[in-house]
Computed example of a mutant assay.
Amino acid sequence: MSSQPADAQAARVEDEAACIRLCVDFANHLDARRHDAVPELFTEDGVLDRMGAVFAGRDGLAQFLAARPADAVTRHLCTNIRVHFDAGDPDAATGSCYVLFFRGAPEQGGARALGPPSVVEYHDRYQRTPRGWRIRERLIRMAMQA
Rank of each mutant, 00 (worst) to 15 (best):
R58K: 13
R103K: 10
L77Q: 13
V24A: 05
S3I: 15
A111D: 10
R131T: 08
V38I: 11
D31K: 06
A113Q: 14
P117L: 01
C78P: 07
D86A: 11
I81Q: 09
C78V: 13
F26Y: 15
I135F: 02
A27P: 04
F55I: 03
H123T: 06
F64A: 03
F42Q: 03
H76N: 12
A143V: 12
L48Y: 03
L22H: 02
D45H: 15
Y122N: 02
A18T: 09
R125S: 08
L114P: 05
V47T: 15
W133G: 01
F101M: 11
A8L: 15
G110L: 12
A37V: 03
L30M: 15
A70E: 10
R12W: 02
C97K: 01
F64P: 02
L41R: 03
E16A: 09
Y122H: 07
P130R: 09
H29A: 09
R21H: 09
A10W: 07
G104M: 08
E107A: 13
D86R: 04
V24C: 03
E121F: 02
D49P: 08
L139Y: 00
E44N: 07
S2Y: 05
R131K: 11
V47H: 00
G88A: 10
D15K: 00
H76F: 05
L48N: 05
A93F: 03
R82V: 10
R131P: 03
D36A: 10
V99C: 11
D59R: 03
E16V: 09
D49A: 02
D86T: 15
E107F: 06
